[in-house]
Simulated assay, not measured.
Amino acid sequence: MIENSSIWVVSDVDGTLMDHSYDLSPAKETIKKLQKLSIPVILCTSKTASEVKVIRKELNLTDPYIVENGAAIYGESLKRVNGEIILGIKYESLEEILNFISNEIDYILTPLNNLTDQEATQLTGLEGNSLNLMRDRHWSMPFLNPPSYLEEKINICCKKFNVDIFKGNRMSHLLSTKSNKGKAINALKEYSNVQNIEIIGLGDSPNDLPLLLNSDIKIVIPGINGPNLNLLDQLKDFEFTLASEPNGYGWKNEINKMINKLELS
C-alpha cells in the first residue's frame, strides 16, 4: 500500500496511539477510515517487532512498521531478505558500549532487559508473555533513565562510540548513529520510490523528535498530565499541532480532522 499512497500516517505507539494501559480502542475506527482511503498507518515505535506484531493483528494493519526506535523496518510487503531493512547495530554490541559508558561515568546504566519481572512490570505495566515479547530485542538498547546531571558526560561518551541516546518518558534508548525514527522514515521513503510523500507524524516524547522533524505535519500528543515540555521546547522553532486530548483520543481527533479535510478537498 505504501507505494500507492502520497500520504502516510507515521505514528509512535506508547503514549500516542494508546495510553500506558495499552488501550488501542480509541483509535480503531479512525484507522478503519484511513484504510478505506488507502492511507497507510506506519507504526514507528521503541517496541520490538514481536510486540508490534500483536498490535498490528489487533488493528488489522498490513503496512510496514518501524521498531526499536528506528533501528529496523519490517513488513511482509518489503522485497528484502526476511522482509526487513536493518539500520541499527546488534544488541550485543550496544550492550558492550553501554558497559563502557557506565565505566567512563562511574555509574551503572541498567538495561531494561536486566530488570527482574517484577521491576519490569512496575516500570512498563507489562506482565507474563508480554515481558518476553518486550525483551525480544535485537537492534537497540533501552535502559533506565540516568540522573540528569550525568547527561553531558554520557553524551561525550556517545561521540566516542558513534551512538546516540534518545530519552523517552519512561526510559532512555541507546542506538547506532545510523538509526533513529527519522532515518527509518527516510529509508522507507527511499525504498518505496514514491515522490512527494506527505508524512503526518504523531508522537509524545523526546525520542519522537526525529520522527516529527521528518514529518510534514507534526502532531504532538499529550499525556493525561499534559504534554512533554522537553519535546515542546525542542519543537519551539517549528510549526506543530498540540492535540487537545491525551493519548489515543487526541490521536483520533487530530487524524479525523485530517480525514475531513481530505474528504472536503
Rank of each mutant, 00 (worst) to 15 (best):
D208G: 07
K32F: 02
K33S: 15
L242I: 11
D23Q: 15
L202F: 09
L209K: 06
G182P: 01
Y249L: 13
Q118A: 14
S140T: 04
A187G: 00
K47C: 08
T45C: 03
D23P: 02
V41T: 13
L150D: 10
E84H: 01
G248A: 06
D216E: 08
G15S: 06
I154L: 08
D63T: 12
I165T: 07
N82A: 10
L150W: 09
P64K: 00
S265P: 02
I39W: 06
I86P: 07
T241K: 14
D14R: 03
S140V: 03
K32E: 15
S46P: 05
Y22F: 14
E119S: 10
I73D: 02
K178Q: 13
Q118E: 15
I259S: 04
D12V: 08
N228E: 08
D136V: 11
V10F: 10
L133V: 09
L131V: 01
D237T: 11
A49K: 11
N145Q: 12
E96M: 14
F161S: 07
E29M: 12
V194K: 13
D164I: 09
S6Q: 12
S77F: 09
N82H: 14
E239F: 09
I165Q: 09
N113Y: 10
P222T: 07
I42S: 02
S5F: 09
K159N: 12
K33W: 08
K90C: 03
K36H: 14
E151S: 10
S102N: 03
P64I: 01
E198R: 13
I165V: 15
I154A: 01
I101T: 03
E92I: 09
L264W: 00
G250N: 06
T121D: 00
S140Y: 06
N253D: 11
L115S: 05
E263M: 11
V52H: 01
R80A: 07
C157A: 12
L24W: 05
L17K: 03
V41K: 02
Q234M: 14
S38V: 09
L78N: 03
M18A: 14
G223M: 10
G83P: 00
I73L: 07
N145G: 06
I7D: 01
E29Y: 09
